[in-house]
Write a protein that binds this DNA or RNA. Structure first.
Lengths: 349, 349
DNA sequence: GCCTCAAATGTAAGCGCTTACAAAATTTCA
DNA sequence: TGAAATTTTGTAAGCGCTTACATTTGAGGC
């Protein structure tokens, strides 16, 4: 090995051109628009490419062509499975269209998300995938000014005219809440992620309230604890809920991770699920089936969402007219953690 | 909105220079080596940057400077938590050093991994993080030729002189196997991921054999089923193991995901864990604690590995002498899924 | 006050590629 | 058969930035 004198320098387009006896323009065309080059020349060029082990320099290409074939995504976290599955599908589909995915995570911090977005744009991302709608108008303005096609995922609102591939968090949760009510529960409590910067959490909580209202219950009376996304926090929150609203018969969590925590806390408190108390989640990630008892939750078509998002972005990049808006359906997976409301001795009779 | 005539073009270094009344070189220096510019000028330039909302074009920067400040990582899969946690830490630490992470996944396919590596290099990755040692010499040669500093993670071998941050898969598993033997088990079976292209799986299986040998048992007699990384496959494999070696008292799986599958299959078969059969995993990902019974497994310091890998790569990039080699310790987490070997009626006595 | 030397800034040459536009080669058709 | 139309290839001008090297400016010493 020992550092060859030089020679071994990385080959460039010009080297290929020289070896094939053509101009750099022709080599470039062979690589990008082969049909515009006569077969004989093309073969010669491709042989040179092979011989030299040439690989294009994407920075140069991006600079010259004014586009990078790279799309960026900023997700709240890489640490759990919520986004992993959808993102994997997103990446696969992008790959099919010759594009690369550049992922960044914001750790659920809005300022960090802004930084990451700007960084991705600076790095030349042709388009962006963002999670949910909640962010400062500034950022949207920046994106519009730079003309970076952007798409929202994991959320879908009929009333906002912006490219999106997602589902209706509110309706999905409302459907589950109706089912819960159907099981006879009247004392519903809720554990939510912080709602301030998170339209998905907000939507889900609203969904519960919608169902309460329909059932003639007071939506504002819903006992609610907010806590960051984390199993441990789910445990703590469950304890808090049970302390504040001991008559609770079902705890609806806005995501599976919190629900798993709640499940664990219930066990520690000696409460049987679902005999003594029911618990529900949202997302239907892997742990929902693994937990025991397994978790009743709202299923989200993660992979399809990723795939559709990639297709939509590809179309936007091709300058397709109109805004891609795809609303996917969610459905409910009834598992062990939800049961009929117990008759509570604490209840007045 | 409606497409402003032009004007709104993205500002460049030259625009900033013009507005600040300096040369582009000075602006560049303000951004990259501020200490080489006198304060007064610097302030003026930075104000111009702000006014214009200038953001550097990284493609151009990468092209001109010959380095991208981007490091790539190719992991076998994004779909489960094994790599997510470590990668998150890796990314955070890189960010601290002003570098960005570009992730690609190979879906456990060697050819795809090669493609991804080449793609990352073409995209200008300054350095690469790869999982495990197993890959064609070709690729290593390519990397050496292009002089891309590369580091192996999630695996560590004393006998291979290559930058690595990992742990000794073999020793880690051997330790667990010794513990298992200590519980009185003599009929050990194993479920492994495909070992052909996966040195981690191979190492772990060897670890079991080491312990068997020490205990005076025949390491070659170990019943072994290989199957791809997936919960369902773990279930199937468990059934297969029990069919082929019904006297088994403990099934050691080379990772938690397969172990979870085994756990589930055991339940379906009406076997109590750990009373009738014990099951162990490797990795200590989240589901290990969530499963019920919880999983006895080998704990891997994922976050620290990611962090250290980032530090090591940063050093290599700074041209630090020698090869960064960090071997991290693993330890055993004893949980419910491992119990004493049952007295088997099938045993001769 | 003048000269030396260091610090600050400017000049301009690329980095490797794409792509208008021009030139050359080939085909078409009267 | 030759001019026009068409296809293929070449020429060269950037894309936005960094960085040797040249130049200017200012400080310090006598």
């Amino acid at each position: 090995m020992m550092d060859m004198p030089s020679e071994a320098a990385v080959p460039t387009l010009a080297d290929v051109a020289a070896r094939a006896g053509v101009s750099t323009a022709t080599v470039s065309r062979c690589l990008n628009t082969p049909e515009r080059v006569v077969k004989e020349t093309r073969d010669r060029v491709l042989r040179a490419v092979d011989d030299l082990g040439y690989a294009p320099n994407f920075s140069a290409r991006a600079l010259a062509a004014g586009q990078s074939n790279m799309v960026g995504a900023v997700i709240p976290t890489m640490e759990n499975a919520v986004f992993a599955r959808g993102l994997q599908a997103f990446q696969e589909e992008l790959g099919r269209h010759g594009k690369t995915l550049l992922v960044a995570s914001s750790a659920y911090q809005p300022e960090l998300e802004e930084d990451q977005v700007r960084a991705l744009v600076a790095r030349g991302a042709d388009a962006l995938l963002l999670i949910g709608y909640d962010r400062r108008p500034d950022l949207y303005r920046f994106l519009a000014k730079r003309k970076v096609p952007t798409m929202v995922a994991w959320s879908f609102r009929d009333d906002v005219d912006y490219p999106a591939v997602g589902f209706d968090n509110r309706r999905g949760m409302a459907a589950l809440a109706r089912l819960v009510l159907g099981y006879g529960h009247r004392q519903i409590s809720c554990i939510s992620a912080p709602m301030a910067e998170n339209d998905r959490a907000r939507g889900r909580v609203s969904g519960i309230r919608d169902a309460l209202q329909e059932a003639g219950l007071d939506p504002e009376a819903l006992p609610l604890v907010e806590t960051p996304y984390d199993i441990e926090n789910g445990e703590t929150a469950f304890r808090q809920v049970m302390a504040e609203a001991p008559e609770t018969t079902v705890v609806m969590c806005v995501n599976d991770v919190l629900a798993i925590g709640a499940l664990r806390a219930a066990r520690e408190l000696g409460l049987r699920v679902p005999e003594d108390i029911s618990i529900t989640g949202f997302d239907d990630i892997e742990i929902a089936t693994l937990a025991s008892p397994s978790l009743t939750t709202v299923h989200v078509p993660h992979r399809e969402m990723g795939r559709r998002a990639a297709q939509a972005i590809t179309e936007m990049l091709r300058g397709a007219p109109g805004w891609a808006r795809v609303k996917l359906p969610t459905d409910i997976r009834v598992r062990q953690s939800l049961g009929p409301a117990p008759a509570r001795s604490a209840k007045p009779f």
